[in-house]
């Protein structure tokens, strides 16, 4: 057998290594670059629109002037409402699937359905929300109906991240607790959940980002085209940032005149998501400190 030329082999290995490094690097950086371009584009066009009046005043002159205050408040209500619904239910489902359900048909079926739910287009959630919450349960176009619809959309994300967070906890902690005469529930609540909670918060962060930007689910369940006042109850309609953006960018009274407003709205929406993420991250850090890892 002919011996391989060691120098040649080494060179080839090094070349392949460099090739892989450089191409993967370029791909990751171009993803970041695209994001930076979009953000700076919106920042460039939207920054000069933003002012104190813009975020605290009602829209005026066919939404070409004034502010977007009711849409900001509307989106905040919807995000809070949907999380109030989806977070506890999602976390409880995640706990059930990972800690209680026995491996088998039922568990596989639940997991498959959760994954399918995550893949359902958001407009389908919107139509479902309309027929169930708005019409059947007679909530009408309301914060309640919109929040529940958005909550359904966020549910699979919360369930999945909770499940993953629990799965990451080493079984030796559970066994150690059970061996001391703790019940499964005590073990879950006092040992497993505190450890998993920082990662469960990730689910909250992801869903806030998703929910605050969704338009289709709120289209038929809560969003108002133009409503220059604040809601008084959960049965009121509200304006919301993504829908407002859609309206003034595509079907407003004067699209050209409201162009600046549209960029401003987009920027505010992005900032809102960013702030929500920062808050959730702080929460995450708080909970990881409570677990005495070191």
């Amino acid at each position: 057998m002919k011996q391989p030329d060691h120098l040649k082999v080494r060179k080839k290995k090094q070349r392949n290594q460099r090739l892989a490094f450089v191409s993967f690097g370029i791909i990751s950086f171009s993803m970041v670059a695209i994001l930076v371009v979009i953000l700076s584009f919106i920042l460039y066009h939207g920054f000069h629109v933003i002012s104190w009046d813009f975020i605290t005043k009602m829209p005026e002159d066919g939404m070409t002037k004034g502010g977007i205050y009711p849409a900001i408040i509307g989106t905040l209500y919807l995000v809070a409402g949907s999380m109030l619904f989806a977070f506890p239910i999602g976390v409880m489902s995640g706990i059930y699937i990972n800690e209680y359900a026995k491996d088998g048909m039922l568990k596989r079926f639940i997991k498959m359905m959760t994954n399918n739910l995550a893949g359902v287009p958001s407009i389908v959630f919107g139509l479902f929300g309309m027929s169930l919450f708005v019409n059947k349960l007679k909530f009408g176009d309301s914060i309640l109906a919109g929040s529940l619809t958005l909550g359904l959309l966020a549910l699979p994300v919360v369930i999945r991240t909770t499940e993953e967070a629990l799965k990451a906890i080493d079984n030796s902690f559970r066994i150690g607790s059970l061996a001391l005469g703790a019940t499964k529930w005590q073990t879950t609540r006092r040992v497993v959940m505190p450890m998993a909670f920082p990662n469960v918060i990730t689910g909250l962060i992801l869903s806030i980002g998703r929910v605050s930007g969704e338009t289709a689910p709120i289209l038929f369940t809560v969003a108002a085209y133009f409503l220059p006042k604040l809601p008084h109850s959960i049965f009121d309609k509200v304006m919301a940032l993504p829908y407002h953006l859609y309206v003034i960018a595509t079907s407003g009274t004067n699209i050209e005149a409201s162009r600046g407003m549209a960029y401003g709205t987009a920027l505010v929406l992005i900032m809102l998501v960013l702030i929500a993420n920062l808050l959730a991250n702080a929460l995450r850090r708080y909970f990881s400190k409570k677990v005495k890892m070191n």
Binding site: D170, F173, I175, G176, S177
Partner: peptide
């Protein structure tokens, strides 16, 4: 009571 192979104190 039981003691395991790998020390498994709680966090």
């Amino acid at each position: 009571g039981m003691v395991f192979q790998k020390p498994n104190p709680f966090p």
